[in-house]
Amino acid sequence: MILAGIGAGLAAIAAGIGIGKIGGSAMDAIARQPEAASKIQTAMIIAAALIEGVALFAVVVALMKG
């Protein structure tokens, strides 16, 4: 049970790093090219959703194994 909790926590950390990097890079990109903001936003959300998907897999595995 505790191991599953640790697993879920690790997944949350990894997803946090990943989404943080995407958000940071998107901010940089928007600051450089404000006119491309909407395209960058869409790409950012897609990438964030894909990372989140992997993180949620981990959470679901933790849910079932605990």
């Binding site: 049970m1 599953a4 909790g5 933790a62 849910l63 079932m64 605990g66």
Partner: peptide
């Protein structure tokens, strides 16, 4: 589903 239960119990 029981990890959810267990983690809620833990909290």
């Amino acid at each position: 589903m029981s990890i959810a239960r267990e983690s809620v119990k833990f909290i």
